[in-house]
Protein backbone atom coordinates (compact mmCIF):
# COMPACT_ATOMS: atom_id res chain seq x y z
CA UNK A 1 0.00 0.00 0.00
CA UNK A 2 2.97 2.26 -0.27
CA UNK A 3 2.27 2.95 -3.85
CA UNK A 4 2.13 6.63 -4.39
CA UNK A 5 0.17 7.21 -7.49
CA UNK A 6 -0.33 10.62 -8.92
CA UNK A 7 -2.97 10.55 -11.59
CA UNK A 8 -2.44 13.24 -14.13
CA UNK A 9 -5.21 15.66 -14.78
CA UNK A 10 -7.64 14.44 -17.38
CA UNK A 11 -7.67 16.59 -20.43
CA UNK A 12 -10.56 16.09 -22.79
CA UNK A 13 -9.82 19.16 -24.84
CA UNK A 14 -6.67 21.18 -24.92
CA UNK A 15 -8.29 24.09 -23.14
CA UNK A 16 -9.74 22.03 -20.30
CA UNK A 17 -7.61 21.41 -17.27
CA UNK A 18 -9.05 19.70 -14.22
CA UNK A 19 -7.71 19.65 -10.72
CA UNK A 20 -5.34 16.84 -10.03
CA UNK A 21 -6.38 14.25 -7.52
CA UNK A 22 -3.63 12.54 -5.60
CA UNK A 23 -4.24 8.86 -5.04
CA UNK A 24 -2.07 8.04 -2.04
CA UNK A 25 -3.29 5.19 0.19
CA UNK A 26 -2.16 5.30 3.84
CA UNK A 27 0.30 2.72 5.14
CA UNK A 28 -2.34 1.40 7.48
CA UNK A 29 -5.75 2.24 8.87
CA UNK A 30 -7.69 0.81 11.78
CA UNK A 31 -11.27 -0.36 11.53
CA UNK A 32 -12.33 2.66 13.59
CA UNK A 33 -10.54 4.96 11.16
CA UNK A 34 -12.16 3.08 8.30
CA UNK A 35 -15.64 3.50 9.79
CA UNK A 36 -14.95 7.16 10.44
CA UNK A 37 -13.92 7.58 6.82
CA UNK A 38 -17.01 5.68 5.72
CA UNK A 39 -19.29 8.06 7.61
CA UNK A 40 -17.86 10.91 5.52
CA UNK A 41 -18.10 8.82 2.34
CA UNK A 42 -21.77 8.30 3.11
CA UNK A 43 -22.21 12.05 3.56
CA UNK A 44 -21.02 12.38 -0.04
CA UNK A 45 -22.79 9.35 -1.52
CA UNK A 46 -26.14 10.36 -0.01
CA UNK A 47 -25.80 14.02 -0.95
CA UNK A 48 -28.20 15.16 -3.69
CA UNK A 49 -25.33 16.03 -6.04
CA UNK A 50 -24.46 12.32 -6.09
CA UNK A 51 -27.63 10.47 -5.11
CA UNK A 52 -29.95 12.26 -7.54
CA UNK A 53 -28.38 10.33 -10.42
CA UNK A 54 -27.72 7.11 -8.46
CA UNK A 55 -31.23 5.77 -8.95
CA UNK A 56 -32.27 2.24 -9.76
CA UNK A 57 -34.62 0.39 -12.10
CA UNK A 58 -37.03 3.34 -12.29
CA UNK A 59 -34.48 4.86 -14.70
CA UNK A 60 -35.59 8.24 -13.39
CA UNK A 61 -33.12 10.78 -12.06
CA UNK A 62 -34.33 12.69 -9.02
CA UNK A 63 -34.60 16.32 -8.10
CA UNK A 64 -33.85 16.77 -4.40
CA UNK A 65 -31.82 19.04 -2.19
CA UNK A 66 -31.87 22.63 -0.97
CA UNK A 67 -32.46 24.20 -4.38
CA UNK A 68 -35.20 21.82 -5.48
CA UNK A 69 -37.94 22.22 -2.87
CA UNK A 70 -39.78 18.95 -2.42
CA UNK A 71 -38.07 15.73 -3.46
CA UNK A 72 -39.48 14.49 -6.73
CA UNK A 73 -38.45 12.76 -9.95
CA UNK A 74 -36.68 14.91 -12.55
CA UNK A 75 -39.25 17.07 -14.28
CA UNK A 76 -40.28 16.63 -17.92
CA UNK A 77 -41.03 12.92 -17.49
CA UNK A 78 -37.35 12.13 -17.96
CA UNK A 79 -36.52 8.43 -18.22
CA UNK A 80 -32.95 7.34 -18.87
CA UNK A 81 -33.92 3.88 -20.15
CA UNK A 82 -31.75 0.78 -20.18
CA UNK A 83 -29.02 2.85 -21.81
CA UNK A 84 -29.02 5.09 -18.70
CA UNK A 85 -28.38 7.94 -21.16
CA UNK A 86 -31.92 8.36 -22.47
CA UNK A 87 -31.08 6.95 -25.89
CA UNK A 88 -34.47 5.19 -26.08
CA UNK A 89 -36.42 8.40 -25.41
CA UNK A 90 -34.78 11.76 -24.85
CA UNK A 91 -31.02 11.69 -24.56
CA UNK A 92 -29.60 13.30 -21.45
CA UNK A 93 -27.17 15.10 -23.76
CA UNK A 94 -30.03 16.90 -25.51
CA UNK A 95 -30.13 19.34 -22.61
CA UNK A 96 -27.02 18.39 -20.61
CA UNK A 97 -24.81 19.35 -23.52
CA UNK A 98 -21.13 18.48 -23.65
CA UNK A 99 -19.03 21.42 -22.52
CA UNK A 100 -15.46 21.03 -23.68
CA UNK A 101 -14.30 24.58 -23.25
CA UNK A 102 -14.41 27.28 -20.62
CA UNK A 103 -15.04 24.78 -17.82
CA UNK A 104 -15.10 27.40 -15.05
CA UNK A 105 -18.05 29.15 -16.65
CA UNK A 106 -19.93 26.05 -17.76
CA UNK A 107 -22.68 26.08 -15.14
CA UNK A 108 -23.24 29.62 -13.97
CA UNK A 109 -26.92 29.88 -14.83
CA UNK A 110 -29.41 28.82 -12.15
CA UNK A 111 -31.89 26.15 -13.22
CA UNK A 112 -30.09 25.41 -16.47
CA UNK A 113 -29.14 21.80 -17.20
CA UNK A 114 -25.64 21.13 -15.80
CA UNK A 115 -22.97 20.13 -18.30
CA UNK A 116 -19.49 18.69 -18.26
CA UNK A 117 -16.93 17.60 -20.84
CA UNK A 118 -18.48 14.16 -21.23
CA UNK A 119 -21.88 12.64 -21.91
CA UNK A 120 -24.39 13.06 -19.09
CA UNK A 121 -25.84 9.80 -17.72
CA UNK A 122 -27.32 8.04 -14.75
CA UNK A 123 -25.04 5.79 -12.73
CA UNK A 124 -25.38 2.07 -13.57
CA UNK A 125 -28.59 0.54 -12.27
CA UNK A 126 -26.75 -1.61 -9.71
CA UNK A 127 -25.39 1.57 -8.11
CA UNK A 128 -28.85 2.43 -6.83
CA UNK A 129 -28.18 4.61 -3.78
CA UNK A 130 -31.00 7.13 -3.67
CA UNK A 131 -32.71 7.03 -0.28
CA UNK A 132 -30.68 4.07 0.96
CA UNK A 133 -29.08 3.80 4.37
CA UNK A 134 -25.39 4.02 5.19
CA UNK A 135 -24.99 0.27 5.68
CA UNK A 136 -26.89 -0.49 2.46
CA UNK A 137 -24.71 1.80 0.34
CA UNK A 138 -21.58 0.56 2.09
CA UNK A 139 -22.45 -3.05 1.29
CA UNK A 140 -23.02 -2.07 -2.35
CA UNK A 141 -19.83 -0.06 -2.72
CA UNK A 142 -17.56 -2.82 -1.42
CA UNK A 143 -19.20 -5.53 -3.54
CA UNK A 144 -17.37 -5.86 -6.90
CA UNK A 145 -20.61 -7.14 -8.45
CA UNK A 146 -22.28 -3.85 -7.55
CA UNK A 147 -19.41 -1.36 -7.91
CA UNK A 148 -18.31 -2.04 -11.46
CA UNK A 149 -15.74 -4.65 -10.45
CA UNK A 150 -13.54 -2.05 -8.78
CA UNK A 151 -11.08 -2.40 -5.94
CA UNK A 152 -10.19 0.49 -3.66
CA UNK A 153 -7.68 2.07 -6.04
CA UNK A 154 -9.99 1.65 -8.98
CA UNK A 155 -12.81 3.37 -7.10
CA UNK A 156 -10.44 6.25 -6.38
CA UNK A 157 -9.32 6.41 -10.00
CA UNK A 158 -12.95 6.31 -11.12
CA UNK A 159 -13.56 9.38 -9.01
CA UNK A 160 -10.68 11.10 -10.74
CA UNK A 161 -11.72 10.21 -14.27
CA UNK A 162 -15.48 10.66 -14.25
CA UNK A 163 -16.07 14.33 -14.87
CA UNK A 164 -19.70 14.20 -13.74
CA UNK A 165 -18.28 13.29 -10.34
CA UNK A 166 -15.94 16.29 -10.51
CA UNK A 167 -19.01 18.43 -11.23
CA UNK A 168 -20.56 17.36 -7.92
CA UNK A 169 -18.01 19.56 -6.11
CA UNK A 170 -18.38 22.45 -8.54
CA UNK A 171 -22.03 22.33 -9.58
CA UNK A 172 -22.64 26.04 -10.16
CA UNK A 173 -26.04 27.59 -10.67
CA UNK A 174 -26.59 28.07 -6.93
CA UNK A 175 -26.62 24.32 -6.32
CA UNK A 176 -25.13 23.04 -3.08
CA UNK A 177 -21.87 21.17 -3.77
CA UNK A 178 -21.16 17.74 -2.37
CA UNK A 179 -19.53 17.96 1.09
CA UNK A 180 -15.77 18.02 1.76
CA UNK A 181 -13.68 18.10 -1.42
CA UNK A 182 -12.99 15.60 -4.17
CA UNK A 183 -9.47 15.10 -2.77
CA UNK A 184 -10.81 14.56 0.76
CA UNK A 185 -13.38 12.11 -0.60
CA UNK A 186 -10.70 10.17 -2.46
CA UNK A 187 -8.54 10.15 0.69
CA UNK A 188 -11.50 8.75 2.65
CA UNK A 189 -12.07 6.04 0.03
CA UNK A 190 -8.43 5.02 0.44
CA UNK A 191 -8.55 5.02 4.26
CA UNK A 192 -11.74 2.96 4.13
CA UNK A 193 -10.18 0.60 1.62
CA UNK A 194 -6.94 0.09 3.56
CA UNK A 195 -9.03 -0.57 6.68
CA UNK A 196 -10.75 -3.41 4.84
CA UNK A 197 -13.90 -1.58 3.68
CA UNK A 198 -15.71 -1.86 7.04
CA UNK A 199 -19.44 -1.14 7.08
CA UNK A 200 -21.54 0.09 10.00
CA UNK A 201 -23.84 -2.34 11.74
CA UNK A 202 -27.45 -1.88 10.65
Amino acid sequence: MTTRLIVASLTIAASVVFAEVEISPPESATQAEGLDAWSRIFDVASHPRCANCHTGPSDRPMWSGPTYGTTRPHGMNIQAGDSRMGVEYLQCSTCHTTKDTDWDNANLMPHAAPRVAMGWALAPVEADWFGKTSDEICAQLRDPDLNGGRDMLEIAEHLNHDLILHWAWNPGGGREPAPYSLQEHVDDILIWGVAGMPCPES
Binding site: Q91, C95, T97, D100, T101, D102, A113
Partner: peptide, 12 residues
Protein backbone atom coordinates in the same frame (compact mmCIF):
# COMPACT_ATOMS: atom_id res chain seq x y z
CA UNK B 1 -29.21 14.22 -32.61
CA UNK B 2 -31.57 16.66 -30.95
CA UNK B 3 -29.83 19.37 -28.95
CA UNK B 4 -31.18 22.43 -27.17
CA UNK B 5 -29.29 25.11 -29.05
CA UNK B 6 -29.58 27.58 -26.17
CA UNK B 7 -27.39 25.22 -24.12
CA UNK B 8 -24.65 24.44 -26.61
CA UNK B 9 -21.82 26.94 -26.86
CA UNK B 10 -20.84 27.37 -30.49
CA UNK B 11 -17.25 26.64 -29.51
CA UNK B 12 -18.31 23.19 -28.32
Amino acid sequence: FAVRSCQLAVGD
